[in-house]
Simulated scan of single mutants.
Amino acid sequence: MEPKHLVQLAAILDCGSINLAARKLNVTQPTLTRNMQTLEMQAGGSLFNRSRHGVRQTPLGEALAREGRVIESAVWSAQQSAVRYGLGMKSETRVGVGPLMASLVMHRVTERLLQHYEQLSVLIQVASPGLMLDQLNRGELDLVIGPLVVSATHKLERQLLFEDELAVYASGSHPLAGAERVEISDLNDFDWINLGTYTFFGESPVELLQRAGVERFNTAIAVSGDAAIGLNAMASGQYLSLMPARLTSQAEQVFGLKRLPVDGDFGRRDMYLWYRPAVGNDAVMALIRESILEVLGLV
Score class of each variant (00 low, 15 high):
Ala222Phe: 02
Asp282Ser: 13
Glu2Lys: 14
Thr58Val: 05
Val149Cys: 09
Met1Leu: 15
Leu87Trp: 13
Arg138Ala: 14
Thr110Gly: 04
Met41Ala: 14
Leu195Cys: 06
Ala177Lys: 04
Ser121Met: 01
Ala228Asn: 10
Asn26His: 10
Val295Ala: 04
Ile145Asp: 04
Leu32Cys: 10
Gln210Phe: 05
Lys4Phe: 09
Ala22Asp: 00
Asn218Tyr: 06
Ala235Tyr: 02
Asp270Tyr: 06
Ser224His: 10
Met1His: 14
Leu47Arg: 09
Gln29Val: 12
His116Met: 08
Ile71Lys: 02
Ser128Phe: 03
Val168Ile: 14
Arg52Gly: 10
Leu133Gly: 02
Gly96Thr: 00
Ser204Glu: 08
Leu64Gly: 07
Ile292Met: 12
Gln238Asp: 05
Val279His: 00
Leu13Thr: 07
His174Leu: 04
Glu203Val: 06
Cys15Thr: 11
Met106Tyr: 01
Ser185Asp: 13
Leu257Val: 01
Pro205Cys: 05
Gly297Cys: 10
Val206Gly: 10
Glu183Asp: 06
Ala167Asp: 13
Pro244Tyr: 08
Leu156Ala: 09
Pro205Met: 01
Ser46Asn: 07
Gly196Asp: 07
Gln79Arg: 13
Leu87Glu: 15
Ala102His: 07
Arg56Asn: 10
His107Ala: 15
Gly44Met: 01
Met234Asn: 06
Gly213Thr: 00
Asn26Cys: 08
Asp14Cys: 05
Glu163Asn: 12
Gln115Arg: 14
Gly213His: 01
Arg269Val: 03
Ala283Met: 13
Gln125Val: 12
Gly16Arg: 08
Ser128Met: 02
Leu161Asn: 00
Tyr198Leu: 14
Ala63Glu: 15
Arg66Phe: 11
Ser291Ile: 01
Asn19Thr: 11
Gln57Cys: 12
Ser204Arg: 11
Gly16Phe: 04
Ala233Arg: 14
Ser73Arg: 12
Glu215Trp: 01
Val75Ala: 11
Glu72Leu: 07
Ala245Tyr: 15
Met1Val: 15
Ala22Leu: 01
Thr93Glu: 02
Val7Lys: 06
Gly54Cys: 03
Ala22Cys: 02
Pro205Leu: 05
Gly267Ser: 08
Leu6Cys: 06
Lys24Glu: 14
Pro59Lys: 08
Phe162Trp: 11
Asn26Ile: 04
Gln135Val: 00
Ala278His: 11
Ala43Glu: 13
Leu273Thr: 06
Arg112Ser: 13
Glu40Leu: 01
Arg181Leu: 12
Val7Cys: 05
Leu156Gly: 06
Met89Asn: 13
Leu148Arg: 11
Leu293Gly: 04
Arg158Leu: 07
Gln119Ile: 04
Ser151His: 14
Gly213Asn: 01
Leu131Pro: 00
Val284Trp: 07
Leu100Cys: 04
Glu163Phe: 05
Lys258Ser: 10
Thr197Asn: 14
Val83Thr: 10
Arg112Phe: 03
Leu113Thr: 01
Leu114Lys: 12
Leu32Pro: 10
Pro3Val: 09
Arg216Leu: 02
Val150Met: 08
Ser236Val: 02
Gln115His: 13
Gly61Cys: 09
Asp282Pro: 01
Met41Arg: 11
Ala11Asp: 03
Glu165Cys: 13
Pro244Val: 09
Ala170Val: 09
Ala78Leu: 15
Asp164Thr: 06
Met101Arg: 01
Ala222Asp: 11
Arg181Trp: 04
Arg181Ala: 11
Val126Thr: 12
Ala63Ser: 15
Phe201Tyr: 15
Leu195Glu: 10
Pro59Ser: 08
Gln29Asn: 01
Arg211Thr: 13
Gln119Ala: 10
Gly88Trp: 07
Leu60Asn: 08
Leu20Cys: 07
